[in-house]
């Protein structure tokens, strides 16, 4: 467990690059129809998750919504496991059973990848409840988008967290659009952070394009939570460069708006800070970027050659004690004997 200030900033910049190159490659592979279903990219928001992860311990709990590739990568899930999951392969971080929106990595304390907007916010509160129940000093980081704040689950969860004084940081990644609907058209408040005030939860607005500001603010809050459990709310002002999902051309916003945010790019910004301070040369940056691209490209190869989940495992992940149906014995129980003269099971029969 590294103390916060010792996390190497160059290493975190490298992580941001890895996330960006991963997402770019995912976009390309999606267009090549190697990836199915929905695919939501994190490009533009990298400083939020890397800053937050840089501020916590490896055993703190992380949970997020469906724009989750970056959160897994930031937590240490390999690009191989992430790309293979997008490809629906058995080597994926959820064995190919979850897909883009459902990345899980128990070992790295990454608790998903949840695709129903705000439905995971109560789960995060439950994880924080467990921390307090056991008297641990962990903290739960719960990420969600600006679209989540108008769901009932969000409100119920915030009230419970405040009522029970649970160790949790609610991190709203406000990228200004809930799917294709602008915050101005979805939310009655002038600023999202005011939602927290309604539950007596301290809140702050943070520049989500600035890695250092995110890290320092999360570190400060997590530190206070470890001393005395309580919830906190951070509104990260950020921006996604791509549409809501791969199928969204994002025609609801102007080119000028996008360009304005691109000029404020989180990677460019941290790079400039580090270069100015003499901690990073252009050559070093290029090398980091090259490595990121190579790692991601290798993950595509890995995903391509990975096996599909075997068909005969279809019933293996429905019940923790083994499949109950169809006609399969549960552990410790004899298989059901077939009756004389009974028709044999058809392909979709029970």
């Amino acid at each position: 467990m590294q103390p916060v200030e010792q996390r190497d900033e160059v290493e975190m910049l490298s992580l941001m690059l890895l996330i960006r190159r991963f997402e770019e490659r995912a976009s390309q592979q999606y267009q090549a129809q190697k990836i199915g279903g929905f695919c939501h990219l994190y490009i533009g928001q990298e400083a939020v998750v890397t800053g937050a992860i840089a501020a916590v311990r490896d055993d703190d709990y992380i949970i997020t919504a469906y724009r989750d590739h970056a959160h897994a990568l930031a937590r240490g899930t390999t690009t191989d496991a992430c790309m293979a999951e997008l490809f629906g392969k058995e080597t994926g971080c959820s064995r190919g059973l979850g897909g883009s929106m459902h990345f899980f990595d128990r070992k790295n304390h990454m608790y998903g990848g949840h695709a129903i907007v705000a439905a995971h916010v109560p789960l995060a509160v439950g994880m924080a409840f467990a921390i307090k129940y056991r008297g641990e000093d962990r903290v739960t980081l719960c990420f969600f988008g600006d679209g989540a704040i108008n769901q009932g689950a969000f409100h119920e969860a915030l009230n419970l967290a405040a009522l029970y004084k649970l160790p949790i940081v609610f991190i709203c990644e406000n990228n200004l659009f809930a799917m294709g609907t602008s915050v101005k058209r979805s939310t009655s408040l002038r600023q999202i952070v005011d939602r927290a005030e309604g539950y007596d939860i301290p809140g702050e607005i943070i520049d989500g394009m600035n890695f250092r500001e995110v890290r320092d603010k999360v570190a400060e809050i997590v530190d206070s939570i470890r001393k005395e459990p309580h919830p906190a709310f951070l509104e990260m002002r950020t921006y996604r460069y791509r549409g809501h999902s791969m199928s969204d051309p994002a025609s609801y916003r102007t080119k000028q708006e996008l360009e304005k945010y691109r000029l404020d790019d989180p990677i460019t910004r941290l790079r400039a800070q580090l270069t100015r301070e003499g901690k990073l040369t252009n050559e070093q940056f290029d090398l980091l970027d090259k490595r990121a691209k190579e790692t991601v490209l290798a993950s595509v190869k890995f995903a391509e050659k990975s096996p599909q989940p075997p068909l005969d495992t279809l019933y293996d992940f429905t019940y923790a004690d083994g499949a109950m149906e169809p006609g399969r014995p549960r552990p410790g129980e004899p298989a059901q004997e077939r009756r004389e003269g009974a028709p044999s099971p058809g392909t979709n029969s029970r």
Partner: peptide, 23 residues
């Protein structure tokens, strides 16, 4: 033994989250 507000979605979800981490 914990009383909750009238928030079924909230406390049912809290239970699921607590179960994810071993309770």
């Amino acid at each position: 033994i914990i009383d909750t507000p009238i928030s079924e979605n909230g406390f049912a979800g809290l239970g699921v989250g607590a179960a994810m981490v071993g309770l």
